[in-house]
């Protein structure tokens, strides 16, 4: 049964279906709606919602709940995620699963509350200290806000690692049909957790390893997980790429704009296609290379000054020319604007 649902609400609904019964957060525009809706829904299904005194506390509450074996989440925006970075590093270092939502706003500093994709580096490349990765998912529709949240809890448990849903105010505020298929979601037993029981008494959650060789072994163990994730977890979506000469690449809300751009370009005789990474980490490099094999050029569009474009260039490794178009400050380009940009660069692109 389809229901009209807001993106931010769909995230909370996905979390409830996934068995998340713990939410610790701190208000920040444009992510507050997620906390507000969690405050309503999570206690109704028997869970804990707590508004912490800061994002610093919130992420350490997430650490605590995850240590106890709960499916737990928090949601914030850039400034709040910056405060959480230490805690995220501890969570990854202690191999704890959790789901975090970053409804990206304009930055740096206080910036504004309009949509940007400028947290790409801080979420995708880490941001906290040490050798760790976040798995990062980038939904582009309300249905995906729901589906990818369910997936995020699954991935977090499977890899015992933070999973970030990186979205923006547009996808968060947008209403679209949401189709919820009710199902029972099995959670893993988590026999590593500290639950205050005789069975889990010997368990220890920590990220401190004093001996250099012991820490290196731990870092290598984490790295092995990340290698596995790169092998198994890349996800992407394509639109009209089979015969494309120009391949547009964008994620999240931008990919929606680019879909319209592809239609406009094709209507004007240019064979364009869209490649949309769904996982920003692991980045779908293999898939991109395969798709880009027969294109003449690639154009990356982002709501930042050029972040994912670096991963695109790394993946393509000079095989195809890569152009970039970015908007910031909360400006989301219209499809027509991107179309004009493509035509303006025709000489470079085709």
């Amino acid at each position: 049964m389809r229901q009209l649902c807001k993106g931010n609400v769909a995230i909370v609904k996905g979390a409830v279906l996934a068995g998340c019964r713990a939410f610790y957060g701190y208000p920040i525009t444009p992510a507050s709606e997620i906390a507000e809706y969690a405050a309503l829904l999570i206690p109704e299904v028997g869970g804990t919602f707590l508004q912490a005194e800061s994002e610093v506390s919130a992420i350490n509450m997430v650490y605590g709940a995850s240590s106890a074996g709960m499916r737990v989440m928090s949601a914030s925006s850039g400034p709040g995620l910056s405060l959480m970075q230490e805690g995220i590093s501890y969570i990854a270092g202690s191999e704890l699963p959790c789901v975090l939502v970053d409804v990206v706003r304009g930055g740096p500093g206080l910036g504004n509350i309009a949509p940007e994709q400028s947290d790409y580096f801080s979420m995708v490349k880490g941001g906290g200290h040490g050798c760790y990765r976040n798995l990062v998912l980038a939904p582009a529709s309300v249905q995906e806000m729901f589906d990818l949240t369910v997936l995020a809890f699954d991935l977090a448990d499977r890899y015992r690692n933070p999973v970030v849903i990186m979205t923006d105010g547009f996808v968060g505020q947008m209403m679209e049909p949401l189709d919820i298929k009710m199902r029972n979601i099995e959670q893993p037993a988590k026999d590593w957790a500290v639950k205050g029981t005789a069975e889990t008494r010997k368990n220890l959650i920590t990220s401190i390893f004093l001996e250099t060789d012991v820490l290196e072994a731990h870092v290598n163990k984490l790295e092995a997980k990340y290698q596995l994730a790169q092998e198994l977890e890349t996800r992407c979506d394509e639109y009209l790429t089979e015969d494309a000469d120009v391949l547009l690449v964008g994620f999240g809300i931008v990919s929606r704009v680019l879909r319209s751009t592809v239609d406009q370009l094709r209507a004007q005789g240019l064979k364009a296609g869209l490649f949309r990474p769904i996982t920003l980490w692991p980045f779908p490099s293999r898939e991109l290379c395969k798709t880009a094999q027969h294109v003449k050029s690639v154009m990356v569009v982002e709501l930042n000054t050029g972040m994912m474009v670096q991963d695109v260039k790394l993946a393509l490794n000079g095989t195809v020319p890569v152009e970039f178009y970015g908007r910031t400050g909360g400006n989301v380009p219209a499809a027509e604007e991107v179309t004009a940009q493509v035509f303006a660069r025709m000489s470079a692109l085709v």
Binding site: T48, V56, N60, G64, A65, V194, I205
Partner: peptide, 15 residues
């Protein structure tokens, strides 16, 4: 459960 500097009461709360 070993936690970050100063955050034990937050982690303890959620535990």
């Amino acid at each position: 459960v070993q936690v970050a500097h100063g955050r034990a009461p937050a982690a303890a709360t959620a535990l």
